[in-house]
């Protein structure tokens, strides 16, 4: 199975939308293992793009390229070009610390700091030298993450005391407190119950007007519910016994789910494998 040609994936964003993130022939290696090969992808501003695909297909790995989290893994190596607002962000000359202020991330497992709810929100602002009013920032961020009403009376309590769903929304609040342009979400609902999941999904709809969102999800219903575009990744076994991921198809979400061009996509979204 060959990787898709550049033209097929770029054509997914044909309209004159401005592109927030762009991947050009991106490959990621872990040591000598090629984990994801030759991904071309355009992510337009103020849209929600979902990455779906079976385990080991490299969807999280590609997500982590957009805020250079792979830099923290010593054996990981990223090839190709990644552009953010038209500027190259891969390579040694770009400071990942500054990039991550503009490209926020929410993780699979809620990971609030063992600090108060208030300090969880102000942490990012403090280290980035925020000059404004911190009380206002905390309220604005918590309102933005639809958490304010639940926690406004216990801002000094530990963030670890919240329920899983509340913790995850706290992490979203923490991410939007530093006013990023993009929010990357790595399976943000996989550790949450259905009600909390719905809350986070509704939140994503609200956040779309301000932020570009990229979400990795195992849940195809979730991808179809929340996203404007969907990228389907697949994995093939390599000679070394590992798995190599590649981008199969990238299109508007309704096209991926109702009329996919590739047979693999059709099989996956109809639940025949994965």
């Amino acid at each position: 199975m060959a990787s898709p040609t550049p033209s097929s994936s770029i054509s997914a964003v044909a309209e004159s939308k401005s592109i927030a993130l762009k991947a050009e022939k991106v490959s990621v290696y872990y040591g000598s293992n090629l984990a994801v090969k030759d991904v071309y992808l355009d992510i337009p501003e103020h849209e929600i793009v979902a990455f779906i695909g079976p385990s080991g297909c490299g969807k999280s790995t590609i997500l982590r390229c957009f805020n250079r989290m792979n830099d923290l893994i010593p054996i990981a190596k990223v090839e190709g070009r990644i552009l953010f607002d038209g500027e190259e962000i891969s390579g040694k000359r770009v400071d990942p610390v500054e990039l991550r202020r503009r490209v926020g991330m929410v993780f699979q497992k809620p990971n609030p700091f063992p600090k108060s709810i208030y300090d969880n929100i102000t942490f990012g602002a403090k280290i980035n030298g925020y000059q404004g009013d911190y009380d206002e920032l905390v309220e604005r961020s918590l309102r933005g993450a639809a958490l304010w009403d639940e926690v406004k009376d216990k801002l000094k309590e530990s963030g670890l005391g919240l329920s899983g769903g509340q913790q995850q929304r706290l992490c979203i609040a923490r991410a939007i407190a530093i006013e990023p342009e993009v929010i990357l979400m790595d399976e943000p609902c996989s550790a949450l119950d259905p009600i909390s999941t719905i809350k986070v999904e509704e939140l994503m709809h609200d956040l779309k007007s301000k932020y570009t969102i990229v979400i990795v999800t195992h849940n195809m219903q979730q991808a179809s519910r929340v996203s404007d575009r969907t990228a389907f990744f697949n994995a093939i076994a390599t000679d070394k016994g590992g798995k190599m991921g590649y981008l199969v198809e990238y299109d508007k979400t309704e096209a991926i789910f109702s009329n996919p061009k590739e047979e693999y996509t059709r099989d996956y979204v109809s639940g025949r494998f994965g």
Partner: peptide
């Protein structure tokens, strides 16, 4: 100290020193 906590700090644009001082040491 869990890896996820350090990742959370880095993802907010913290440098290594800021992560160590504000997140890892208190935890």
């Amino acid at each position: 100290v869990p890896r996820s906590l350090k990742d959370g700090a880095y993802a907010l644009g913290a440098t290594k020193r800021e992560t160590v001082v504000s997140v890892i040491l208190p935890a």
